[in-house]
Every structure is written in C-alpha cells, then in structure tokens.
C-alpha cells in the first residue's frame, strides 16, 4: 500500500462528494486527521516517518483548503467530473454581467479616489452578498439529480471575476489605510 493520491479529498475527509457541505463536519474531520499526520507528531521519529508525515500533512492541508472555500470546491468537483473550467481562456460573459462588472469597477474607483474607506467596506459587504447567491446557484447546478456542469463552469468563471473585484477593494482599502 502506498500513499493514495488518487483518493479524492471528499473521501479523504469522509464527506459526501457534493457542493453542499457540512462545514462543521469538515472542520472536525480535518482536525482529527491533521492531529494524526502533523509533522509535530513525528518530530522525534525516524527520517522516513518524518518525510511521510510531511507529505500527508501537506495533502491534508491542501484538501482542506480546497473543500472549505466554495470556489475551490466547485472547481475541484468539476475537475473530478472531467470539466475544464477554462478560467484563463474563456472570458466570454453575458453582456449584462460585463455591464455590472463595469459598474462595480467605477464604484470602487470612485470610492478610492474620494478616500471613502467606509464606502469601500460597504462595497465589500455587497460583494459578499452577491457571492452568497452565486454559491446558492452553484449548489443548484452541481447537486441536482441532473447536474448542469457547463452552467457550473460558467458560474466558476463569474466567481473569478467577483474575486478579482474583492481583491481590488482590499487593495484600495489597504492603500488608503496604510
């Protein structure tokens, strides 16, 4: 038996392979496994066991990060289903969505130019709200009896746009504060 890198992250943490996830159960499973494989448990062990612990702990951390973030989780589910999310190559978006993006950008730029940190924080909250509804749409597309995988890939690409906006808001807040 060797380290089974083919086992998917859902199986690793004993969770059902779906988008909708019991976050508390994932947290608990992660902590239980991390407690077993963390290199601190092997600090006085022979080299070979220390290397093994490092590999396992790395994989457990990667799996946890992948499953706990909705975007990474959706992308991972699609990847398991053999769908390329084309996040770098496919930038075609509905005109309406692109218009919204432009409005967001303008709002961020205005708030930044006017040094309105509170306005930026309000935008960040609005964006978080939009991401919540995107998460609900993803759950519908991925977890239904007849999943809409292409639709889910499009939602992942939308999420990427939104994530960039969030990054811009964060950068703007940091630029104003510091």
């Amino acid at each position: 038996m060797t380290l089974d890198f083919k086992q998917d992250f859902f199986a690793l943490f004993g969770q059902p392979r779906r988008f909708g996830l019991d976050a508390a159960a994932l947290d608990a499973a992660y902590r239980a496994i991390a407690a077993e494989v963390h290199p601190d448990r092997y600090a006085s062990a022979p080299d070979s066991e220390r290397r093994l612990a490092l590999m396992h702990a790395t994989r457990v951390n990667e799996g946890y990060q992948t499953l706990r973030q909705p975007l990474a989780r959706a992308r991972y589910l699609l990847q398991l289903a053999g769908i390329d999310t084309q996040e770098e190559t496919n930038t075609s978006m509905p005109a309406e969505f692109l218009m919204e993006q432009m409005e967001w950008r303008e709002a961020i730029a205005d708030a930044r130019a006017g040094s309105h940190v509170e306005q930026l924080e309000k935008l960040a909250r609005e964006l978080a709200g939009d991401l919540k509804s995107l998460e609900a749409e993803l759950a519908e597309a991925l977890d239904s009896a007849d999943p809409d995988l292409d639709g889910a890939a499009q939602l992942v690409r939308k999420w990427r746009f939104m994530e960039k906006l969030d990054q811009e808001i964060g950068d703007a807040i940091e630029a104003l504060l510091y």
């Binding site: 038996m1 060797t2 380290l3 089974d4 943490f13 004993g14 159960a25 608990a28 499973a29 239980a32 496994i33 407690a35 077993e36 494989v37 022979p46 080299d47 070979s48 066991e49 093994l52 612990a53 396992h56």
Partner: peptide, 27 residues
C-alpha cells in the same frame, strides 16, 4: 529504516482511518 518505510505508510493510513472513524462516532 528502509525495511520499515512501507510499514510506516500502512500505519499512518490506519491512523487516519481511525481518526476519521473516531470522529464520526463522536459526531
């Protein structure tokens, strides 16, 4: 150490399984 490498791997896998099970039972 070379001889016990595969053994260590199996033990670690067993520990992971135990950790998961223990946690499921407590849940």
């Amino acid at each position: 150490s070379r001889l016990t490498d595969p053994f260590a791997e199996r033990r670690m896998n067993r520990n992971i399984q135990r950790a998961l099970k223990g946690h499921n039972i407590s849940e």
